[in-house]
Write a protein that binds this DNA or RNA. Structure first.
Lengths: 129, 129
DNA sequence: CTAAACCTTGACGCTCACGTCAACGCAAGC
DNA sequence: GCTTGCGTTGACGTGAGCGTCAAGGTTTAG
């Protein structure tokens, strides 16, 4: 199949697929006229990337999973590097949950009209999913 | 005081202060040579902005608080618009907490080697603090 | 007097995962 | 033959909140 069909079947865009290729995540074959050629295995890879992005992993973080699938494993998260990414992300999520609980308490206190001087630590913090 | 001193006392940078001014959040007076001139009231405004950013509010969201302080209120969150921002942010935080709990369960399940097909909704979602 | 340390505006850089446009080639239906 | 709809590469735009020069003017310490 060509890039348009893969995009449609995966529910994404051709631009995204070309971007994955430029990042080395999705190598495609080429037909004689230069068109990219994909198969079901590529669709599987794209689906893996999408589901990982859905839980808040960056594209960079999906590399081990893609590599794991390409190495022949039936699931992308059966390799050590992938599981390490899971563990790291879990720690991030836990930290984020802590942080958000603190923020929530702060907002509730302010809405309840309490003292305006208790401010959460202004640490750099990025909470994303 | 001039911009450098204000930055130092607020624990920020001159660039940030100039940026706030460009966004209309921090209007400064000017001395005869064109230097910006600030007082304790400005410092108070900057501190307010910082503490709000620390709980994950965007600069845009800090506008009502700054306006409230400039309107003469002793605290920036005593005005209706400010409290509305608090309420909206609280709702965002709650949604984020829900989302992160789901993600956390997903990660735990994957690490426990379970079925690889349950994937959280790939909704657009931005969780930040 | 001079050098350091401050101030000014303006403009580009950064992150991330693409969106969007430009300008072109290729293929198929009428 | 012509239009329509695929495909190609390349390059710039997006958002948030500044960081980081660049190229000057001003003030202060020695």
């Amino acid at each position: 199949m060509r890039i348009g069909e893969l995009a449609k079947r995966a529910g994404t865009t051709t631009r995204a697929l070309r971007f994955y290729e430029s990042e080395g995540l999705l190598e495609a074959g080429r037909t004689s006229n230069g068109y990219r050629e994909y198969d079901e295995h590529h669709l599987r890879l794209v689906r893996e990337i999408q589901s990982l992005q859905a839980v808040g992993l960056s594209l960079e973080d999906t590399r081990p999973f893609v590599a794991c699938l390409r190495a022949g494993h039936e699931s992308g998260d059966s390799c050590p590097d992938s599981r390490e990414v899971y563990r790291r992300k879990l720690a991030e999520v836990d930290a984020c949950l802590d942080r958000l609980h603190t923020v929530r308490e702060f907002l509730l206190a302010r809405l309840a009209f309490q003292d305006p001087c208790l401010v959460p630590e202004p640490k750099e913090f990025q909470c994303s999913s």
